[in-house]
Design a protein around this nucleic acid. Sequence first.
DNA 1: CGTCAAAACGTTTGCGCAAACGTTTTTGTT
DNA 2: AACAAAAACGTTTGCGCAAACGTTTTGACG
Lengths: 338, 338
Amino acid sequence: MKVTISDVARLAGVSTATVSHTINNTRYVSNETKEKVYRAIAELGYTPDASARSFRTGKKKTIGFIVPDISNKFFATMIESVENYLSAHGYHLIIANTKENMEREENNIRLLTAGLVDGLLVASTMDDFQRFDELIPAGFPVVLVDRTFEIKKYSSICVSNFQPIYRSVCRLAGKGDRRVGIIGGLPRLSSTKERISAYQQAVADCGLAQDESLIRYGDSMENSAQTCLDELLAQDCDAIVVCQGLMASETIVYLSKKGIQPAKDIDLVGFVDYDSDFYQLYSNQMDRIIQPVEELGKAAGEQILKRVEEPDAPIFEKMLTSTYKPHDIPSSWVHSDR
Amino acid sequence: MKVTISDVARLAGVSTATVSHTINNTRYVSNETKEKVYRAIAELGYTPDASARSFRTGKKKTIGFIVPDISNKFFATMIESVENYLSAHGYHLIIANTKENMEREENNIRLLTAGLVDGLLVASTMDDFQRFDELIPAGFPVVLVDRTFEIKKYSSICVSNFQPIYRSVCRLAGKGDRRVGIIGGLPRLSSTKERISAYQQAVADCGLAQDESLIRYGDSMENSAQTCLDELLAQDCDAIVVCQGLMASETIVYLSKKGIQPAKDIDLVGFVDYDSDFYQLYSNQMDRIIQPVEELGKAAGEQILKRVEEPDAPIFEKMLTSTYKPHDIPSSWVHSDR
DNA sequence: CGTCAAAACGTTTGCGCAAACGTTTTTGTT
DNA sequence: AACAAAAACGTTTGCGCAAACGTTTTGACG
C-alpha cells in the first residue's frame, strides 16, 4: 500500500542509506546512482513520510502561532505575512485561536509545545508572566508578538504604542480640543497599557482635562465599542481616540447613526490595523495611526526561525514604528479640483 | 533530558504498556495502578511526544486548510470557524495560503498530503479538475470548500450562488433599472461562474440590457474593483452587482469619491462576506447578499472529520443558503423616529 | 604490483510509542 | 479442590526514516 524508502532502495538496487542521502543531500552519491534512485522514486511515486521524518530528526518544520482573534484584520493580515515567510523557508504554520481567553491560550500552548511544533509565536492574552512562563518548556523557542511582558525573558516583536498616541493627543490639544476621551483594548494587555499611559501623559503635558471617566476599555471584538461610546458621549468629549481597528470602524458607524459627523462635530483618532484601501474609507473622517502589520509578520517569522536554529541566542527585542496620518480635509470643505 | 514513557513506567513500577493504556484509556487498568502512573507522570512532568505518537498511529490529529487569501475577511472568518470546530474535537489546523496562485496550491497540496495532515480542506483556485485530482493521493480525505468542480468526486460545502444573484437582479429590474453591470471574481472559479450565469439568466428573463461589456471580472484582492468600475461607469449603468466583499466596499469608497451616491444615483448589490457590524456601514447603501460563513466553516470541519474517520463514505454535497437583505432606506428619506 | 587514501556505497540501530500477543492472578462455580 | 473465565498486567515488536558506523572499490603512485 504505502511506498517506503526500502521499496525505493530495492527497485533502485541500492541501500536505504543511499536513498536517504540522495534525497537529503547528506553525503556524496554518484550521478548514476542518484539517477537510479530518482527513477525508482518516480516510478513508485514515493514520498517520504513526514511523520517518520520528524519523529526521527526531532524537527517538525512547523511553527505554531497563538492568536487572540483570527477574524481580526490585524491578526489575519499578520498570519498571512507570517505564513508567507515561513512557507518560503520550508516551514508550515499551525494556527490556534484563543479569543482572548487565558484558558484557551494555556491549552493551546500545552498542546503545541508537546512535540507538535519547533517554535511558537504568541500574541498572548495573559498579563501574568509567571503563569505564562510555566507553560513553556525550558529552552523552547518562543517569540512574543504584538504584546509583551514586563520581564524580558522572551524575544519580542512589537509596535510602538506610546509615541503615536502621545503625538496624536498633543495634536488634538493643538487644535483646541479640551476633553479627549479614549477607548482602549483589554486593560491587561501591554499594548493597551502603553497606549493608555501615553494618553495620560499627553493629557497631563498638554493641560487637557484629566478625568477617569474619559478612559474606557473595549475588548476589540464586535459590538464592544458601542457601550464605551455611549459613556464617552455623555462626558461631552471634543475628541475620541480609539485604540483598535474594528472598534474604530464601529465608532464611525455608530456616530454617523447618531447624526454626529466625525471630524466635524467631534475629532477622531484611530489606531488602525494596517494600511489598506479599506481604511481609506475613513481617511477623511479620522486621524489614523497605521501599524506596519506586514513587517511585523515578516519580522516574527524571521525571529522564530532564527531562534529555532539557535535556541539560546540572546534575547531580541524589536519595535516597529507606526505611521501617523492626519485625516484628509473633505473636498466639500475647501475648493479645489484635485 | 527528555522524559519518555519508560521513565514513567520505571518510576511507577509498571510496564510501558500499562502507562500507555492508562493515558489512552485503551484497556482496563485498576484504580491503584492508574494513580501510581499519574503520580509518576506528574512527578516527572511527562508529556507524550506527539511526533512519536503520530508516527506510530498514523494519525496526526491535524487538518490542513488551503486558502486562497487569508487576509480576506471571508476566509479569515471561515478559518476561525473551522479552527473552532476542530480544536473542540482535538484537532489542529495547518493553514496554507495560495494567493489564488495555482503553483502555490499545487505545492501546498503536495506538502500537506505527504504525511502532515489527516485530511485536507481546499478552497481551490484551480479550474482544471484533472490537474487537481492528480495531486490528491488515492483515498486521501478531502473536502472542497466554497468552490467545487464539475466532476463530483470530492465532497463539498458551498454556498448558493445562483439563487441570490438571480433574485437580486430581478429586483433591480423591478425597480426599473435597465442596464445592470456586474463585477465577478476570478472567471475560472465555480463560484464566479455560477454567479455570472445567474446574472445572465436574470438579465434575459427580465428583459434587461444584454451586453458583454456589462460583465467585468476582478480578482478580489485590494485595488481590483477600481478598473472594473471605471469600465462599467462608462457603460452608463443603472445598477452594479459586486460579487465579493472587499470589492464591494471598494466600490462604495470609489463611487463616493467620484461623487456618485450609492442607492440614490446608482443601485448597488454586494455579495458580502458575512454579517458583521462591519458591513452595516453599507446597510443603507446597497442590497447585501450575506454568506453564512460561520456555518460554512463548521460544516467544513464536521465533514472533514467525518471523512477522516470514514474515508470511503459516499460523496457528500452541502449547499448553504445566503441571506438577502435589501438596503435600509436612509432616515433622511422618510420621516419616522424608529 | 603492493599500498593506501579517497570515493562510493552498505548494515544496522534506535528514536518513542501503541498495540498485538502473552502471562499471571483473582474470582466464582460446581 | 479443581477448573474456567475474567481481571489485571507484562514483553516485545515494528512503524519509516536518518545517520552512526562500516565495508568495498577504485586508482594514483612509488
